[in-house]
């Protein structure tokens, strides 16, 4: 029989829905395009809660802080955003990623 266990290690969307249903303000940030050696592929995402807690990933860790900040702004004003990041060699080195790369991230509030 085919097993039905959760294959996707990332249940960010399940968690986002649960947070929202539980009364928290929630935003989603999703990688929409990448160029060069970006560490995470299109469709990688973060769910961010009103208190700044988040799960998932959109990079190896170097831009999550900035994305969370923008997500909290989106929770405030309800506007969507497209963020563009260049992952510089220096930044990439600091967090142990492949060098170079650019990444665009779509941020939206869950309503």
């Amino acid at each position: 029989m085919t097993d039905t266990q959760m294959l996707d290690h990332d249940d960010v969307l399940e968690r986002a829905a649960a947070w929202k249903e539980g009364g928290d303000a929630v935003a989603l940030a999703t990688v929409v395009s990448t160029w060069g050696s970006s560490p995470r592929q299109v469709g990688s995402r973060l769910a961010i809660k009103g208190d700044g807690a988040f799960i998932g990933s959109v990079s190896g860790g170097c831009i999550e802080g900035a994305v969370v900040e923008e997500a909290l702004s989106a929770i405030e004003d309800g506007n969507t955003r497209v963020l563009e990041f260049g992952v510089t060699d220096e930044m990439a080195w600091e967090v142990g990623l492949a060098c170079g790369g650019e990444i665009s991230i779509f941020v939206e509030r869950l309503d």
Binding site: L13, E14, A17, K20, E21, L28, R109, L110, D111
Partner: peptide, 14 residues
């Protein structure tokens, strides 16, 4: 994104 759409998406994936 609307929660109703997210819920529908999660149910369809499951």
């Amino acid at each position: 994104m609307k929660l109703t759409n997210l819920t529908a998406l999660n149910e369809a994936r499951a």
